[in-house]
Design a protein around this nucleic acid. Structure first.
Length: 261
DNA sequence: ATGCCGGGCGAAGCCCGA
């Protein structure tokens, strides 16, 4: 069994002890991290190596930043999402690794937030999703197990947000965004959590403010998308609420899946 | 509740997140 997890850590330096503890307890084979908020030179590589992981990343000062941690060597590394050479935001890293003898391609994705919806940020989000769709289509041609995991900043359905009416016009829930997300799924990708769980009201993010965690006012916006070759191996997918319950947590909590290899 | 937390930056208060 191979376990692949995704977690927006909201600063890898501020969250280092949490992340190391989680790696030891949850023991994923591959961990996809987002919002590192640091450049590559400041990434705490040694601490992760001590925990048994190698890492590749796309870093950026203060904002964004994505990494892949793996117990097995990472190859064929891509640190940019194709489709716009002028886009310098560190939101995509992809690599291949061998898990129990099977090559699996993984990507760590930090999709733009897009708020406010009447700004350039929203059109950037939609363009970014279009580029992701194009790249996801290309990856299908390889006919290999692919896991596109990360903070998608997309609430797929009403049952994935605590108050759908209130979120209707938010960039995470706007119909254009949900439609674009479905277009990616319709290429042939499976959203791991929803494939195995029909129940609603299970979240991966809770705002720091207004007691959102205590009231369970959350959003499900962190997703693991699987190519058909990966989806055929899907054995489990769960949300691990433990890291969000700790002191000084990230506002996101990890989501993981297991592939039967 | 478009800023009530929280992080980065940089050394006070602003930008940003979702």
């Amino acid at each position: 069994m191979a376990k692949i997890a995704t977690w927006n850590v909201n600063s890898v330096k501020a969250r280092l002890s949490h992340v190391v503890d989680w790696l030891k307890e949850a023991a994923p084979d591959v961990a996809l991290l987002q919002e590192l908020k640091c450049i590559e030179e400041n990434f705490p590589l040694m601490e992760f190596e001590d925990a048994g992981y190698s890492a590749v990343l796309a870093g950026q000062k203060a904002y964004n930043g994505v990494a892949i941690l793996s117990r097995t060597p990472l190859e064929d590394i891509t640190t940019r999402l194709p489709g716009d050479d002028t886009d310098d935001q560190a939101r995509y890293v992809e690599a291949v690794t061998k898990l129990n003898g099977r090559m699996v391609r993984v990507a760590s994705i930090y999709l733009p937030n897009g708020n406010p919806v009447d700004s350039e940020k929203f059109s950037y989000k939609l363009r970014w999703m279009g580029r992701l769709k194009n790249h996801a289509r290309e990856l299908l041609r390889l006919e290999e197990p692919v896991v596109l995991g990360g903070d998608y900043n997309v609430i797929p359905e009403d049952g994935d947000v605590w108050d759908p009416a209130r979120w209707r016009d938010d960039a995470l829930f706007r119909m254009e965004v949900r439609r674009k997300f479905r277009e990616i799924l319709n290429l042939g990708y499976t959203e791991s959590y929803r494939a195995l769980h029909s129940e609603i009201g299970h979240y991966s993010f809770w705002d720091y403010q207004a007691g959102a965690w205590q009231k369970d006012n959350g959003l499900r916006i962190d997703h693991l998308l699987l190519s058909p070759q990966a989806a055929d191996l899907l054995a489990a997918c769960e949300i691990d609420r433990t890291p969000r319950s700790k002191t000084k947590p990230s506002d996101h909590t990890p989501v993981w899946c297991e592939l039967a290899i």
